[in-house]
Amino acid sequence: MAVATSQFTLKEIKHRLRHGDTIFDALTLIAGSLALLTVLAIGWQLWQESHLTRQAFGWELIFSADWDPYGDKFGALPFIYGTLQTSLLALVIALPLGLGISIFLAELATPWLSRTLGFLVELLAAVPSVIYGLWGVYVFAPTIVKPIGETLNSIAGFIPLFAGSVSPQYSRLAASLILAVMILPTISAVSRDVFQAIPRAQREAALALGATHWEMIWQVLIPYGLSGILGAVILGLGRALGETMAVTMVIGNNYNLTASILEPGSTMSAIIASQFGEASSIDLFRSALIEIGLILFFITLVLNLFARLLVWRVARRVPSEMRV
C-alpha cells in the first residue's frame, strides 16, 4: 500500500483516470460542496439583506406583536407563533396516523393491498400545495374544519387555546389540519420503508418468545426503527414549517397575536408570500420580511440539528439494547 502511494507516477495517474475513480470522486465532491455552499450563501444573503431592520429594531422584531408596515412597525411574533403552532399541531395529528398507516402497510396488509395503498399514499405527496389550498378553501375548511372547530369551542372554549369563534373554518386549526394531510404521506411512506427494512429475524425472534402481534410491533419494531421514524418526522416537520401556499389560503392571514387555534392567524412563510410583492418598494419593509425569512431559516436549522442529535443518540442506543 505504502509502495503504491509513493510511486505516484504517470502510469499510476493514467491507471486511475482510466478507471474513472478520480473524476468520479471529484464530481461527487463538487456536488457535495455545492449543497453546503448553497446553504451558506442563502444564510449569508438573508443576513446581509436584513441589516436595516436588524439595526433599527434588534430583538424587538422577534418579541413584538405589532405588525403595521406602513406605520413602520414590524413585530414578527404572531408569525413565529403561527408557524410553530401550526407545524407542531400538524405533527401531533399526523404522526400517530402516519405510523398507523405505515404499520398497516408494512406488517398487516396483504402484499397487493399494501402495494396499492402505498402507491396512493405516495401520490398524496405529489399533489401540489396550491391544489391542497384550493381544496382547503372551498371544501375542507367549510365542511370539515368548521364543525370540528365549533365542537372544540363549545366543549373546551374556556381554555385559551380553544377560545374565540370569529371564524373556526379559516383559522390556525384549518392550517394545521391541511398541513397534517400534507405531511402524512411523507411520514407514512418513510416509516413504511423503515419497517420493511427491519430484518425478519427480529420479528421471528419476538414471535418465538410468545409476543403477540401488538407486542412485536410496539416493543420490537418501533424501538428498532426509531431513528428512521425520527427521520420521517424531520422530513414532515420540514415540509410543515416551510409550507406556504396552502397555509396562506386557509389560515385567514390575520396579523394579531392570539393564543387560540380557532382564531385566524398567519405564518412566517405566509406573510412573506402575501406581502413581498409590495414590500420591494420600501427598504425597511423588505428588510423586515427578509429577516423573517432568516428567522425561519434559523428555526429550521435548529430543529434539524436537534432532530439529528436525537437520531444519533437513538441510533447509538438501540442496537445494543436489541442485542440483549
Binding site: 406602513y70 370569529v166 389560503m249 390575520n254 392570539t258
Partner: peptide
C-alpha cells in the same frame, strides 16, 4: 392606505 392595520378579527385573502 394600501395595507392598513385592520381590526383584530378580520379575515384576509390574497
Amino acid at each position: 392606505n394600501k395595507l392598513p392595520k385592520w381590526l383584530p378579527s378580520t379575515l384576509a385573502g390574497n
